[in-house]
Simulated assay, not measured.
Amino acid sequence: MYTPSQLWRGVRRGVQRPSFFGQELNRLYNRRLYRREYNTDGIDVMAEDWDNLIILDACRYDLFSAQQQECSGTLERRESRGSHTVEFLVGNFAGRTLMDTVYVTASPQLYRWNDRIDATFHEVINVWKHGWDDTHKTVLPRTMTDYGRRVAAQYPNKRLIMHFIQPHYPFIENPEINVGNRLEGSDKTDIWGRLRDGDADVSASEIWDAYRNNLDRVLPAVRELVGTLSGRSVVTSDHGNMFGERSGPIPVAEWGHPPGTYTKELVTVPWQVVSSSERRDIRPEQPHSKSNQFPPSTDRQHDDDTDIMTAQLYPLGYLE
């Protein structure tokens, strides 16, 4: 259900950009008049066989398959439950008690939507609180790899989810493309909005190259991390990313990863399986906070953390 402010923003967008109505009608169709919160045709990642799940945010299957030589294992494909991170989180974790799993994340989205998702993990390590890189306005892959090693050592009997930001915007190797503060006073917080509205000062091919560079930046860190982890590892994505392809049933060009848009570019994701003869003895247990080597990162929200989260969502393109 929309709030009055959301409805007004939708009307304002529709007046400024008529294609908005086509996009919204597509979402109504895909979400069955908003009777479903996510793509119910997607897999339940928690029901799949893995000890370590490495999530690359917004990674298209076709790009990963072309670049995946950085990772060993067997590449398969899966259908995701979301075309947006929040849909992925709701579809896989909402209302569940997952005391056998530690979730390590560079994305603030679980924290932001904590009340809606209402998931209970053995531990949540919010790397975005303490590992944010102010220069690049993101959490760098190396930081996530370092956290992953430490978490695996501390929790040897838990399933481990590592949620990297890359190849998601902003672009590490191409900062000149990132919108950031250049749009002060504008409601367009990322390059996808500018491309969608036809007022970007870079070409789609330049954006694709920058996106591919982000994947090239994260894959060596992922390969290094997987090489240090025991058990069966899977490298996947929460959703893909669109580069002007048409959604449906109304053929509207889409950019980025809008929710409720279940195109193959958005919900077909890589599933790279790195098998191991050594499997971990996974046990669900209550957390022992006194032994936690990491800064506090429980589900409780604090004003300072909320301010940090808000400041970081802007350069990731999530707030308007």
Rank of each mutant, 00 (worst) to 15 (best):
P4W: 14
P4V: 15
W8A: 14
W8Y: 10
V15F: 11
Q16R: 15
L25I: 12
Y29A: 13
N30M: 06
R31E: 01
Y38T: 12
N39A: 08
D41C: 09
I43A: 05
D49W: 04
L53S: 04
I55T: 08
I55N: 00
L56M: 07
A58E: 08
Y61M: 10
F64I: 07
Q69I: 02
Q69K: 01
E70L: 11
T74K: 06
R77P: 04
F88T: 01
V90C: 08
N92C: 09
M99L: 15
D100Y: 04
A106N: 00
S107G: 07
P108T: 04
L110D: 00
R112A: 14
N114I: 10
N114K: 12
I117A: 09
V127N: 00
K129S: 10
D134W: 12
T138N: 10
T138D: 03
P141D: 03
T143G: 03
T145C: 08
N157Q: 13
K158P: 02
I161C: 06
M162V: 01
H163A: 00
F164P: 00
P170L: 11
P170E: 04
I172C: 08
P175L: 10
V179H: 02
L183V: 14
D187V: 12
D190F: 06
W192V: 12
W192Q: 07
L195C: 09
D199V: 07
S205Q: 13
E206K: 15
I207W: 06
I207A: 13
I207D: 09
A210E: 13
Y211G: 12
P220F: 05
G227E: 13
G227P: 13
V234D: 00
F243H: 08
F243W: 14
F243R: 14
F243D: 08
S247P: 02
G248Q: 15
P251V: 12
E254W: 02
G256F: 05
H257I: 03
P259Q: 05
V267F: 04
V269A: 06
P270I: 03
W271S: 00
V274G: 05
S275V: 08
S276E: 03
D281Q: 04
R283E: 10
Q286G: 08
P287Y: 00
S289M: 00
S291W: 12
Q301N: 03
H302P: 04
D304P: 04
D305S: 07
D307S: 15
D307N: 12
L316M: 08
G317N: 02
Y318H: 05
